[in-house]
Nucleic acid binder design. Structure first.
Length: 487
RNA sequence: GGCCGUGUGACCGAGUGGUUAGGUUGAGGUCUGCAAAACCUUCUACAGCAGUUCGAAUCUGCUCACGGCCUCCA
């Protein structure tokens, strides 16, 4: 457990040694999706990134409580405290109950993440399920003097807060600059300060999602849910709070302020932010309309896509970039990742066929150390993957009889693949539907072709090989015989 | 305008004050009945200018370009 894991902390803007507050327990909170529409690929990247982080913490032996919320209420259109609730708006549009919207897109979200082979979080709380916790928190903040109520809406008093606290911890901005640069927005009259944000919002008569509160009928502000739920499940102080980079300046800044104002302590020790997925250099986003839906990517049914790509290839594509770098999407890049991923998995498939020698020319323990070093350095999956391609070369070389490995080395190899490829990177074979019948059938075809080759009947042997190629099975000849894989 | 960040070879993408990232692609080779696969070898790099340094693509400054946040978004 005395790992050398180093994490980039947005608070300090540098990498810090990871020291959990109560080892071996680790509390991890990640801002989840707002479920009023389909998740797009950019959203998925964040959750895949935190899946990698979650998995590596587990590998290190930590007992991680991973909380990722579902935002299903209170998220305003345009942060004006008078906009429409996103769910209510969408519900009107689709003529559905708000909770039907929530249900539909929550299920869709889960389906997509399952395809990407992410582990489910330990707890997945919803905003609507924690209204009373949010109300209690707002009450406490008011009691502590950092919020005030106007006409049924409660605002957080940023000016008061910043007298004794640093409101701009995450962004390094000057409060005055923020004041000067905030645009003139509507609905400002009620607020004392223009940076003040709503904790609780009075519901207009047409509002569908509404709850009673000490301040009248209303609904919670966007930021308070995460503060309330992280506090409930992870305590006043926990280890890691994460989310997309776009959340740092506003959402997370306000979360810190709320938690601090309520509990007199900073909520999280490490703040981690994942970078954006871009398309042609521009951020993929819902409002920009340049987002892919995952099923479009899988099927290739999108104007920007040449073909479809399997979920695991896409996951691999994401893991080949570091989580704090932007990742630019293109067909070429995906194609490259797809081929690399298949090369990796094909090599792994050879593992059971490898034969041990009495001597070993490779040092698997050394490679494992480098893999750990890579992940210890702020979860550097691209370097880990580079190391794994070294392993690919070794496996292929051993299979070809050009390199020797002993029994112990083989065991280490199995373990390495199991730990780093399956458990940490979270990759798996896409074609899990392989069954014994297919295996027998392919063996039969390979035998037929082999006999044709012995008889020098190359037209028959090529017909078998090429026909299989056409329907997606590739035959590979080697001195050890012929094997096959799905192409 | 403010804050934060980025600019690496055909493409994607790591890293580092002096040593090969890696994947994909191109070229050559080994193997093969021919291929494919695999393996070996190999080409085109660190936006520009100036400075620090024995040495910088890596540090500093400036310039240019791009992106994110400052309004909902992972």
């Amino acid at each position: 457990m005395d790992s050398k894991l180093v994490i980039y902390n947005t608070l300090s803007r540098r990498k810090e040694l990871f020291e959990p507050i109560n080892p071996p327990l680790v509390g991890l909170y990640v801002c989840g999706p707002t479920v009023y529409s389909d998740v797009h690929l950019g959203n998925c990247r964040t959750f895949v990134s935190f899946d990698l982080i979650f998995r590596y913490l587990l590998y290190l032996g930590y007992k991680v409580r991973y909380v990722r919320n579902i935002t299903d209420a209170g998220h305003l259109e345009g942060d004006r405290d008078e906009g429409d609730d996103k769910f209510a708006k969408k519900a009107k549009l689709e003529q559905l109950e708000p909770m039907e919207i929530v249900q539909k897109y929550t299920l869709g979200f889960h389906d997509v993440l399952r395809l990407f082979n992410t582990l489910p979080p330990s707890i997945e709380p919803t905003a609507t399920g924690h209204i009373s916790e949010q109300i209690e928190m707002v009450k406490q903040i008011i009691e502590n003097g950092y919020a005030y109520e106007v006409n049924g809406t409660v605002y957080f008093d940023v000016e008061k807060y910043s007298q004794t606290n640093d409101y701009t911890l995450l962004t390094n901005r000057q409060l005055e600059d923020m004041l000067n640069n905030t645009r003139e927005l509507g609905g400002q009259d009620e607020k004392k300060g223009r940076l003040d944000f709503a904790l609780w919002i009075k519901a207009k008569p047409e509002h569908i999602m509404r709850w009673p509160s000490p301040w009248g009928i209303g609904f919670p502000g966007w930021h308070i849910e995460c503060s309330a739920m992280s506090n409930k499940y992870l305590g006043n102080q926990f280890d890691i709070h994460g989310g997309g980079m776009d959340l740092a300046a506003t959402h997370h800044t306000n979360e810190i302020a709320q938690s601090q104002a309520c509990n007199q302590t900073a909520p999280a020790k490490y703040w981690m932010h994942t970078n954006m997925l871009t398309v042609n250099g521009a951020r993929m986003s819902k409002s920009a309309g340049n987002g892919f839906l995952p099923h479009e990517l899988f099927s290739g049914n999108h104007p920007l896509l040449n073909r479809g790509y399997a979920p695991m290839s896409v996951r691999f594509f994401m893991l080949q970039a570091h989580y704090r770098s932007t990742l630019d999407f293109s067909n070429e890049a995906l194609e490259a990742s797809d081929k690399g991923y298949k090369r990796l998995m094909n090599a792994i498939a050879l593992l059971p066929k490898l034969k041990a020698s009495n001597t070993s020319e490779v040092n698997i323990a050394e490679i494992k150390d480098r893999c750990i070093q890579a992940m210890d350095d702020d979860f550097n999956s691209p370097i880990l993957i580079a190391e794994l391609f070294e392993v690919v070369r070794i496996i292929n070389s051993v299979y070809d009889g050009k390199t020797k490995i002993d029994l112990k080395g083989l065991e280490q190899l199995h373990l390495l693949i199991n730990d780093f490829v399956y458990n940490i990177l979270g990759l798996k074979e896409d074609s899990a539907e392989n069954n014994g019948d297919l295996e027998k059938l392919m063996d039969f075809l390979i035998k037929l072709r082999h006999e044709a080759k012995i008889a020098k009947d190359y037209s028959t042997s090529d017909l078998i090989r090429n026909s299989l190629q056409e329907i997606g099975f590739q035959l590979k000849d080697s001195k050890e015989g012929t094997i096959w894989s799905k192409s």
